[in-house]
Design a protein around this nucleic acid. Sequence first.
DNA 1: TTCTCCTATCGACAGGTGTCGAGTAATCAA
DNA 2: TTGATTACTCGACACCTGTCGATAGGAGAA
Lengths: 194, 194
Amino acid sequence: MLKPPHSQPAIETTDPRVQRSRRMLMDALVKLLTEKEFADVSVQEIADEATLNRATFYLHYPDKDALLQATTEARFRELIARRGLSFTDCDGALRAIALGVCDYLAETTSCPSQLSQMPLENSVISLVEGMFQEGASAHGVEPSAEVALRGTAVAWAIFGAARHWFLTTERLPAEEMAAKIEVMVKPMLLNASH
Amino acid sequence: MLKPPHSQPAIETTDPRVQRSRRMLMDALVKLLTEKEFADVSVQEIADEATLNRATFYLHYPDKDALLQATTEARFRELIARRGLSFTDCDGALRAIALGVCDYLAETTSCPSQLSQMPLENSVISLVEGMFQEGASAHGVEPSAEVALRGTAVAWAIFGAARHWFLTTERLPAEEMAAKIEVMVKPMLLNASH
DNA sequence: TTCTCCTATCGACAGGTGTCGAGTAATCAA
DNA sequence: TTGATTACTCGACACCTGTCGATAGGAGAA
């Protein structure tokens, strides 16, 4: 469900030991996910795979959902960065974001069967939301409830569409899908953004 | 996560014992949710509250998430039915659905603090999706990948917007919000539906 | 180096989970 | 009513969870 305690604690630490432990835990989870479902992975297994003690796991994440969340977020951020997403051109950004989400789903969930489930969504959607906020403020659109609402709705629409695409057999190339999503979703932004 | 086994098994049984047990489990969960967080509710507590054996719980649902899912779906269906949502007028339907989702979130999650989390979404979104399918086919729009995609994206957008609204302090009346959502989301449907 | 702070380790704990086999009781059809 | 079927109960099982206190061990500053 929700992790109010260390919801976003897993960031900002310079201590190399901490960095190392967290990376090892993430890598361990990713490896285990190529072998079995998330639900079938225990904290003990993750700790073993990471060559860390189980108690150490709980020093960093409240439970395995939080680790999945953090891992997901890190991978998605990296993917976006690798694509060199810049918000200098407003027009390309929408398609790029859609493409990023499609790519992300296709890449990180192709392993066992359908990991395309819920815990992933929280982090990805809120990241996409953040991108819209960023993009809007970068272009002088002052933040308002209206803008925030539209950003949220668009983020959810994009994720929902990308997920739909991902769950489809015989799917189109990601680029085509991203273009489709762009034209479908763009009208939602036109009334209130600049 | 996902429950492939009895994902939608909780339907269609005439045996009164089954009906009774499932209803008692749902009612028990609803009652317990007024007292504590979902994460803090154990299967044993649910069974006790329902005056059923714990093993009986597992005869009906694979875990407590599945019960929450089923309970959620039942409540949302009932709410929609109570509002007398009809799809005879295409124009009102969109706003009515948005209103239904807002109502739903406001009603079922006001109890402890924030239950507005993930397990709920699956069922509600797919229900809304189903409504679009239904509405489209009722008006002679032949089913296509395009229509399905738009329905999905709209469902996610509505849910995301309603959730955003729900998590806002000082929120507008649900009716106003639903109207806002309608105008925001409607353009997504215009190109491909009739 | 030495000292301090923080992280990682270890063993153990009370509790929860999901499943099983065997027995009881309710339902439905013949 | 009888008999077959199915739901429910019960106790027990191995395992996982989240947390604790005590201890060892690196990182960085004095």
